[in-house]
Amino acid sequence: TGQSYENMVTEIMSMGYEREQVIAALRASFNNPDRAVEYLLMGIP
């Protein structure tokens, strides 16, 4: 849902990432938050 997506974005942003980076990582990871954080740390393949 939209609210849980926003919660994911906010939670990952709280780790120090910009909203645009978080959204790009979530898009690349098909909204998998664990993989999105991994992409933010290691780069999107």
Rank of each mutant, 00 (worst) to 15 (best):
A24P: 06
N31F: 08
T1S: 07
G2F: 07
E38C: 06
M8S: 07
Y5P: 06
L26P: 02
D34K: 15
L40F: 03
P33I: 06
I44C: 12
Y17V: 02
N7W: 06
I44A: 15
L26Y: 03
S4D: 13
I23P: 03
R19K: 10
E20T: 08
Q3V: 08
P45L: 15
E6I: 04
E20W: 05
E11R: 08
M42P: 09
M8L: 07
R35W: 08
N31A: 04
G2N: 15
V37T: 11
A28T: 11
R19W: 02
L41W: 05
N31V: 03
G2Q: 05
I12D: 00
Y5D: 14
G2W: 06
A24T: 13
T10W: 06
A25M: 03
L41R: 15
E38F: 05
S29E: 06
L40C: 03
N7F: 07
L26G: 02
L40Y: 09
R27A: 13
E11V: 03
E38P: 00
L26C: 01
A24C: 09
A28L: 09
D34A: 11
E20H: 10
E18A: 09
R35Q: 13
F30S: 14
A24Y: 04
M13W: 00
A24H: 10
R19S: 03
V37L: 14
G43A: 11
G2Y: 13
Q3Y: 07
V9M: 02
A36P: 02
S29T: 13
Q3C: 13
R35T: 13
A25V: 01
P45R: 07
E38Q: 08
Y39N: 13
M42H: 13
E6P: 03
V37F: 09
R35I: 08
Y39Q: 13
V9F: 01
G2L: 08
Y5Q: 08
L41P: 03
M8T: 11
P33D: 01
A24F: 04
E18G: 11
P45E: 13
S29K: 06
S4N: 09
V37P: 04
S4G: 12
T1A: 11
L26S: 01
R19G: 02
I44H: 13
A28V: 09
E18S: 11
R19P: 02
M8H: 10
E11C: 02
F30R: 15
N7L: 08
V37Y: 09
Y39V: 08
M13E: 10
V22C: 05
A24D: 12
Q3H: 11
Y17S: 01
I44T: 15
Q3M: 11
E6G: 04
L40K: 00
Y17P: 01
I23L: 06
T1P: 04
Q3G: 11
N32R: 10
G43Q: 12
I12T: 02
A36S: 03
G43H: 07
N32G: 02
R35K: 12
Q21D: 12
S29N: 14
A24R: 10
T1H: 03
R19E: 08
E18C: 09
L40I: 02
V37I: 15
E11M: 05
T10G: 08
P33K: 14
Y5W: 07
Y17L: 02
T1K: 13
A24S: 12
T1M: 13
S29L: 00
P33G: 05
T10K: 11
V22T: 07
T1N: 03
N31P: 02
Y5E: 11
A36C: 04
Q3L: 10
R19M: 01
V37C: 10
D34L: 08
D34H: 08
P33R: 15
Y17N: 03
Y5C: 09
A24M: 07
A25W: 00
A25S: 06
S4Y: 07
E18L: 06
I23T: 12
E38V: 04
S4C: 04
G43R: 13
Y39W: 09
E6S: 07
Q21V: 09
A28C: 03
N32S: 09
Y39R: 13
E11K: 14
R35N: 04
E6D: 04
A25G: 04
V9C: 04
L41K: 15
A28D: 12
E11S: 10
V22D: 00
V9K: 01
N31E: 08
I12C: 03
R35C: 07
L26Q: 00
Q3W: 04
L26D: 01
M8F: 09
V22P: 00
I12P: 01
Q3K: 15
E20N: 13
N32P: 01
E20F: 02
Y17E: 01
R27C: 04
A28R: 12
V22K: 02
E20Y: 02
P33C: 05
M13T: 09
N7S: 11
S4P: 06
G43L: 06
S4M: 14
E20P: 09
N7I: 12
N7M: 10
Y5N: 08
M13G: 05
R19A: 04
M42W: 05
T1Y: 04
L41N: 03
G2T: 14
T1C: 11
S4W: 06
A28Y: 07
G2E: 13
L26F: 03
I23D: 12
E11T: 08
I44Y: 12
I23M: 06
E6V: 04
N32T: 05
M13I: 08
G2P: 13
E6R: 03
E20Q: 10
P33S: 06
M8D: 04
V9D: 00
N32E: 12
R35D: 06
R27I: 04
L41F: 08
G2K: 13
Q21K: 14
N32K: 11
A24K: 10
N31D: 09
I44G: 15
F30M: 15
N7A: 12
M42K: 15
S14G: 15
E20K: 15
M42R: 14
